[in-house]
């Protein structure tokens, strides 16, 4: 019998709290005014987190896209003078802005188990009234994804157009056709899930124990300190 593990499959164990703090800090920094070197550092850290979670495909996709866009921008950005070209450059910068965020979110969702989240939040003495909805949210994301795939398939043989063209030219109609079944079926699943969780004793008043051992360790402190140092250096204007 293989050993029982509750931890997500990572190279180095990272506490969910660290992932959340990094997610928030990287968001704040990416949204603000920042030099390119900060962007590169943050994207690098996000890639490291993805790699640590053995999410190779995602690392290549998001990381590759980020550095490709960056290379194009720094290579041609200043030479483009036509309105369309400038529009494209602005669009590419917008996408670049969100990529580290997407990477951190992927790590949070794909590389963290519900048990880890609950354990970490309980250690941080957050109230169950916050922890339970959060855990439900973590469970909700893959549920929606599963339902969405089924809906898109059904659209294809119901003769409802779905694709770039439909989204661009009939955005509201497409949205309705996707959202209505998505909401109805996801809401049904979540309702039953809540009932099942309650009959397994999950409750605002329950005094829970946790099988999984979450702890802030050296890698956690290093990561958080690293991002905070980048933040301070950036604010001081020492990063160019």
């Amino acid at each position: 019998m293989p050993a029982i593990t509750l931890q997500s499959n990572s190279v180095v164990k990272i506490d969910p709290r660290t992932k959340l703090v990094l997610f928030l800090l990287i968001n704040i920094m990416m949204m603000g005014n920042k030099p390119v070197i900060v962007e590169v550092l943050l994207a690098g850290i996000s890639c490291l987190l993805l790699l640590n979670g053995r999410l190779i495909k995602e690392t290549l996709l998001y990381g590759g896209l980020f550095f490709l866009l960056l290379a194009i921008d720094s290579g041609y950005g200043l030479q483009v003078s036509t309105p369309i070209g400038q529009g494209l450059i602005i669009a590419s910068r917008m996408i670049r802005l969100f990529l580290p965020m997407v990477m951190c979110f992927t790590v949070l969702m794909k590389n963290t188990t519900v048990s880890e989240f609950i354990a970490a939040f309980q250690k941080a003495h957050l109230p169950m009234g916050f922890i339970i909805p959060f855990a439900v949210m973590v469970r909700f994301v893959p549920t929606v994804k599963e339902e969405y795939q089924a809906i898109v398939q059904a659209m294809s043989y119901r003769g409802i157009p779905m694709g770039v063209k439909a989204v661009l030219f009939k955005p509201f109609m497409t949205l309705e056709y996707v959202m209505v079944p998505l909401l109805i079926s996801s809401a049904g699943v979540m309702d039953e899930l809540a009932a099942a969780a309650m009959t397994r004793g999950l409750d605002r008043d329950s005094i829970r124990s946790n099988l999984v051992d979450v702890k802030l360790r050296l890698p956690d402190y290093t990561l958080m300190a690293g991002v905070i140092i980048i933040f301070i250096l950036m604010k001081k204007g020492w990063l160019g």
């Binding site: 188990t113 048990s115 397994r200 409750d203 829970r208």
Partner: peptide, 25 residues
């Protein structure tokens, strides 16, 4: 319950097996 899709609260199996016991403290 009836529907296997909607009665497992965790995203991993081991977490689910331990879930009830954890709630009992």
């Amino acid at each position: 319950f009836q529907n296997p899709k909607s009665q497992i609260f965790n995203v991993d199996t081991t977490g689910e097996l331990a879930f009830g016991c954890e709630n009992q403290g």
